[in-house]
Design a protein around this nucleic acid. Sequence first.
DNA 1: CCCACAACCGTAAACGTTTACAGAGATCGT
DNA 2: ACGATCTCTGTAAACGTTTACGGTTGTGGG
Lengths: 343, 343
Amino acid sequence: MADGPTINTIAERAGVSIASVSRVLNGLPTRQETVRKVMAAADELGYVRNAVARSLKSRRTHQVAFAMADVGNPAYLAMLREIQPVLKAAGYRLVLHSTDAVAADEIDVLHSLGERYVDGLIMSPLRVTEAHLEMLAAARAPVVIIGSVPEGTRVDNVRADSRTGVRLAVDHLHALGRRRIAMVNGPLDTVPGAARGAAYREALTELGLPYDEDLVQIGDFYRPQGRRAVADLLARVPDVDALMCANDLIALGALDVLRAAGRRVPEDVAVVGMDDTDLAAASWPSLTSVSLGSAERGKAAAELLLERLRGGEREPRVVTVPPRLVVRASTAGPEYDRKEGGE
Amino acid sequence: MADGPTINTIAERAGVSIASVSRVLNGLPTRQETVRKVMAAADELGYVRNAVARSLKSRRTHQVAFAMADVGNPAYLAMLREIQPVLKAAGYRLVLHSTDAVAADEIDVLHSLGERYVDGLIMSPLRVTEAHLEMLAAARAPVVIIGSVPEGTRVDNVRADSRTGVRLAVDHLHALGRRRIAMVNGPLDTVPGAARGAAYREALTELGLPYDEDLVQIGDFYRPQGRRAVADLLARVPDVDALMCANDLIALGALDVLRAAGRRVPEDVAVVGMDDTDLAAASWPSLTSVSLGSAERGKAAAELLLERLRGGEREPRVVTVPPRLVVRASTAGPEYDRKEGGE
DNA sequence: CCCACAACCGTAAACGTTTACAGAGATCGT
DNA sequence: ACGATCTCTGTAAACGTTTACGGTTGTGGG
């Protein structure tokens, strides 16, 4: 762990100047003889270029940050899984921030862009506050936001279409003959919570179903809260025949409670989740879920960022990833699982 | 996104030297008046310290790398979830590498330590080759390995105890009265595959049960392969009454096949997984699983590394994390799930 | 034989910090 | 009142690169 060799060490040993060393290492035109000497010296010394010094001079760190709300959440992990290889292929390292969905932490991350330890940032905030927007406007490096951002915000933006997603799910339930379709949502002051709630209402009216406040239950985006919410809901509205859950964890909680209550899924109550995480395929009955394309969004975000890192100025772009309904046993019955058998 | 202010800008505006600016920003003793002027200038300019320049001078990047075999694997994610907050609390950023379990990539990561873009590395290789050991010996920054490393390797090392883990599971099945306990394993040339296979055999002999080759089925560590393996096994040994699966995904595959074959779990066949991933709690019936303490291992690794980053030289340490059997419905029956209800 | 030109190389400055050192005032004791 | 001491500040070097610029050498043409 002793101090490694620098281009100075190489220069001395090869009997040339540091400029020549640098030129050789960067493949700039140099006499063959010099190249040979430098390469030999570098090899013998086990030289590795110091990334920090290089970054200071070149003003490029070849690092990109990804700030996710919660390392535990499978939806963000799906993004991460796609972001990572795209960045890696382009020669960027990935710096991971977990903000625990705390706005102050997110602001911190944006602020820290000023430290210039990364060339760009992909961020997926749970809520977008005034402070976010201010920091975004002043950001010292390119930022791509995953999630919706107010109209007119000058920032690259990848969004899911949870409205259409909810529509797909509700239509599906309706087509199966369900008429008492409840919504189990997370907090309404989060971006996804608000969007999904509104979309549910919209979908109902489009289908000519009444919007019944009793059918809406607010909890949080986790399994225990999902259990509690669904328990309350069942107590209040025993005749519910379908549950539209705002994410997969809530839906798993719903399955727990329904099973304990002796309601069959999907015969008595059909259940749909959102995000199509790994858990949806693993649960029993397997969970019909709306994929909001976390993976695709991650990929799109990484590509937008790379484009901007390469390309320089450009009008901000908005990419919208279409949702996809993945039908499984929790709405279509166990026979559906048999089709999934493959690799 | 214009060029940000530097301490030079501040120095000019405040009418002091850059040395004073630096001193103020680092809280070194300075006259009140100077502090005031510098702070004022810094505020007005929205100054943020350049981390790259600082790192170059201080030879500290405040970054740590975590190289995991596979961003998709829940076991590594569990580690990540614990590593992240520990590092964050200590003021380190996390650089994430995914090596896709390719040895060459892992070597690359070790080599890139020479670039000095991180202060240390946590790595979890699937197999440890000769080349790994060489690079480890020559590593230019502290490294902590999660996973077993040959005796005598001079490196901090956090290991699981899968032998005891398998023992716990097999004992549990035996205590439940099972006598035809099969093992569904992954490839034997992987570190975990070999260890778990050997441990299974050992556990049987300790219990005085015969080791029957027919009861061992080799597949791979994924769900479809798990299905296939268990299907083969059932065809060959119809009277099997318990399955020890080498990881949770295999176990989920087992549940699929057993259900399709009309065997009740656990009444006819009890099933145990390993790793205790999120999937274990999500499945139905919920899956009894041996936790090898991924989370604890991550945490321990992060702490070892921090200690070394702070403390300097010290003999390498080996930490072994004890396994824990998490009993759920797939061995103990559905009544077990009711106890899990809480938050 | 001299000049123009190309090819290569070394010197030095720059990136933005931190910090050793020494100089300038202020303060104190005698 | 004078030197000793202390406090604060500025100058400059250093961290390890990249790169603009100018100098040296060699080639070829006139």
